[in-house]
C-alpha cells in the first residue's frame, strides 16, 4: 500500500474571530510505503492529528490530494471512501474512543460486525490481494499468528479474543468502556484498529495512557504490523518510540519536516 499526500493543506475558520483562518497543516508532500513505520513527532497543537485525520480519509484537506495506490481518497463518494476506510485503514484515536453501549468485545469487533456487508463492497475497491496484504504475525510480541484474509464472524470473534488476551483485557471482555481505565481503553482501541488486519494503520498518541510495559508492547506490535506489510503512521509527542521508527518526521506549527 502506497499512501501519498500531495500538497495537502488544512485550514480552519476560527469562529467568532471574523475571517481569521488558522492553517493547521501547511502545504506538504509526504509518502508512506508498506512495510514501514513512520513516526510524526511534535508538540500538542502542532497539527499532527489533523494531518493524520486527512491521511486516513476522515477529514478532507482544504487543498491537495491523498492518494492510496494512486487513487484519490477524497475524490471517492463518502460511501465508498467509508467502505475503503473500513476495509483498509485502522485508526487508533487520541481520545478514549469507545462506544459506551457496547462491551469491550463488541467495541473491538465493531469494524467487522457493524459494517460486515459494506466490507463486501469495499473489496471491489481494494482487495487484500491487490494491496498485497500478508496478514499480521506478532512474533516478537509473543502471540501466535493472527492473520486472516477474509473475516467471518467466527474468525473475527476468535481474533478479538486473541487480541484481548494479548493486551491483558480478556477479563474485561464484557465490561463497558465506562468501567475501563485510560490505558485499558487505549488497548481496546488498538485491538479494534487491528482487528481487520488493515494495510494502513494510523495511531494518534497510541501510548498516551499506557505504562512502560504496555507502551513497549504497543510499539512492538505496530513495528510487527509494519514488518508484515502494513504502512504504519504513528503520531506522538514523546520521543520514546523513535527507536521503532523507520522514518521520522517533525511537525512544528503546521509545518512538516523529515528528520
Amino acid at each position: 500500500m502506497r499512501i501519498e499526500a500531495k500538497e495537502i493543506r488544512r485550514d480552519f475558520l476560527r469562529k467568532g474571530r471574523g475571517t481569521n483562518i488558522l492553517t493547521a497543516v501547511q502545504e506538504c508532500n509526504i509518502t508512506f510505503e508498506s512495510g514501514t513505520l513512520s513516526m510524526i513527532v511534535g508538540r500538542s497543537g502542532s497539527g499532527k492529528s489533523t494531518l493524520l485525520h486527512m491521511l486516513s480519509g476522515v477529514l478532507a484537506p482544504t487543498a491537495g490530494k491523498v492518494l492510496y495506490e494512486g487513487e484519490d481518497l477524497f475524490a471517492m463518494p463518502d460511501e465508498r471512501r467509508s467502505a475503503f476506510r473500513n476495509r483498509h485503514i485502522g485508526f487508533v484515536p487520541q481520545g478514549a474512543g469507545g462506544i459506551a453501549s457496547l462491551t469491550v468485545r463488541e467495541n473491538i469487533l465493531l469494524p467487522v460486525s457493524l459494517f460486515g456487508q459494506q466490507k463486501e463492497g469495499a473489496s471491489k475497491d481494494a482487495t487484500p490481494e491487490k494491496s498485497g496484504s500478508k496478514g499480521l504475525h506478532l512474533g516478537e510480541a509473543g502471540s501466535k499468528g493472527l492473520g486472516f484474509e477474509k473475516t467471518s464472524s467466527a474468525d473475527a470473534l476468535q481474533r478479538a479474543e486473541e487480541w484481548m488476551q494479548l493486551f491483558g483485557i480478556t477479563t474485561l471482555a464484557d465490561a463497558r468502556p465506562s468501567e475501563l481505565s485510560g490505558g485499558e481503553l487505549r488497548r481496546m482501541a488498538i485491538a479494534r484498529a487491528l482487528i481487520q488486519n488493515p494495510e494502513a494503520i494510523f495511531a494518534d498518541e497510541p501510548t498516551g495512557d499506557l505504562d512502560d510495559e504496555n507502551t513497549r508492547l504497543v510499539f512492538e506490535m505496530l513495528r510487527q504490523a509494519a514488518k508484515d506489510g502494513a504502512a504504519v503512521v504513528v503520531v506522538t509527542h514523546e520521543n520514546e518510540g523513535e527507536r521503532y521508527a523507520d522514518r521520522l518526521y517533525r511537525m512544528n506549527a503546521g509545518v512538516l519536516t523529515e528528520e
Binding site: S56, V58, D78, E79, R81, S82, A83, R85, N86, R87, F91, P93, G95, A96, G97, G98, I99, A100, L110, P111, L114, F115, Q118, A122, R192
Partner: peptide, 18 residues
Amino acid sequence: ERREEFAVLRMVGASRKK
C-alpha cells in the same frame, strides 16, 4: 455528547449516511 462515539464510527468506516 456523543460526538466522540460518532467519530469512532466514522473511523471504523461508517459513512455519513450510515
